[in-house]
Lab assay of single mutants.
Amino acid sequence: MTEYKLVVVGAGGVGKSALTIQLIQNHFVDEYDPTIEDSYRKQVVIDGETCLLDILDTAGQEEYSAMRDQYMRTGEGFLCVFAINNTKSFEDIHHYREQIKRVKDSEDVPMVLVGNKCDLPSRTVDTKQAQDLARSYGIPFIETSAKTRQGVDDAFYTLVREIRKHKEKMSKDGKKKKKKSKTKCVIM
């Protein structure tokens, strides 16, 4: 069974824990209790493949930012979460993405942009803004509501699919490099 290491990042209060708990335990946590770091595991079937999701729910508070490099190193894919009623959390996505790329030393890291709290009427981040940002990053965008469960499975499952595509691409690139290195030079 394939294991996928997913990391949920975003500013404090955007609903990272609520999304994760909704996926794992099928219930909505409405009281806000700032996370330092929590880890969850769940076995699911995605596109006919049974897999184990190892999900790291991270601290959004700035005082825990020193811990970010460590979990970013171990993560295979990242859910970059903002709240649709919090423009600052949307603007912060850029910083999370840049930090992930720096730590992973790669421009090509599996990510999904997630606009959470889409059940709320007080939207300050337009869907088109988020779609445009995701398009500019070359990553999928999904709106979710941890409260109603809308888009929750889709967000995590899409990230797994992005990781699969990335692994497939990397193995193809690896095979191309191996083929090239088999060419021999004969000096007579």
Rank of each mutant, 00 (worst) to 15 (best):
Y64W: 10
I46H: 10
L23P: 02
G48I: 06
A18P: 02
D33V: 04
Q22S: 10
T50W: 07
I55M: 10
G12R: 06
T20C: 06
V8R: 02
V44T: 14
E31T: 13
K5L: 03
G15S: 00
D57K: 02
D33W: 03
D54E: 15
R41C: 07
T2G: 15
I21P: 01
K5H: 07
L23A: 15
T2S: 14
D47P: 08
E31I: 14
K42L: 08
Y64G: 05
Q22T: 07
V44H: 13
Y64A: 05
V44R: 11
K42Q: 11
V29Q: 13
S39F: 08
A18D: 07
T2R: 14
G13V: 10
D33K: 05
L53K: 06
V9M: 12
V29R: 10
T58Y: 02
I46G: 10
V45E: 14
K42G: 12
Q61G: 12
D47Y: 06
L56C: 08
D54A: 07
E49M: 07
I21E: 15
P34L: 04
K42F: 08
G12Q: 14
L52R: 15
V29H: 13
L56F: 03
V44Y: 13
Y4A: 10
G13Y: 09
L23T: 15
V44K: 13
L52Y: 14
Q43F: 06
V44I: 11
Y40Q: 00
G13Q: 13
G13S: 11
T20I: 06
P34M: 07
T50L: 09
Q43N: 13
E49D: 11
D54T: 15
V7K: 10
V8Q: 04
I24N: 09
K16Y: 00
I36K: 00
R41K: 08
G13P: 12
V7S: 08
Y64I: 05
I21H: 07
T50A: 12
D33E: 06
Y64D: 06
A18I: 06
Y64R: 05
I55L: 09
S39N: 10
I36C: 02
G48Y: 07
Y32F: 04
Y32W: 12
L19E: 14
V45N: 13
Y4I: 11
V7Y: 06
L23S: 15
L23F: 14
V8K: 02
T58S: 12
D47N: 10
S17L: 00
I55D: 02
V8G: 03
K16T: 06
D47H: 10
G48L: 05
C51S: 10
T2P: 14
E63G: 08
K42D: 08
N26V: 05
Q25L: 07
L53G: 09
E62H: 09
D30G: 12
N26M: 07
Y40P: 00
Y64N: 06
D30Q: 14
D33T: 04
F28R: 04
T50K: 12
D38N: 03
V44D: 13
G10A: 07
F28E: 03
G10T: 00
I55F: 09
S39Q: 09
T58L: 03
D57I: 02
L6G: 03
L53I: 15
I46R: 10
E37M: 05
Y32A: 05
D47V: 05
L53Q: 08
E62M: 08
T58N: 02
D33R: 04
Q43S: 12
Q25P: 02
T50F: 08
Y40W: 15
V45R: 11
P34H: 03
E31D: 13
V14Y: 07
C51F: 12
E62Y: 08
P34W: 03
T58G: 05
V9E: 02
T58M: 02
Q25G: 10
I55S: 10
V45H: 10
V14P: 11
T50S: 11
Y4T: 12
V8A: 05
V45K: 13
Y40R: 00
Q61R: 10
K16W: 00
L19Q: 14
Y64S: 06
A59V: 01
H27G: 13
K16D: 00
D38Y: 03
V14F: 08
E62D: 11
Q61A: 15
F28Q: 04
T50N: 13
E49T: 11
L6S: 03
V7N: 08
S39M: 15
V8L: 08
V7P: 02
T35G: 01
S17H: 01
S17N: 01
G12K: 06
I55Q: 03
V45T: 13
L52M: 15
L56Q: 03
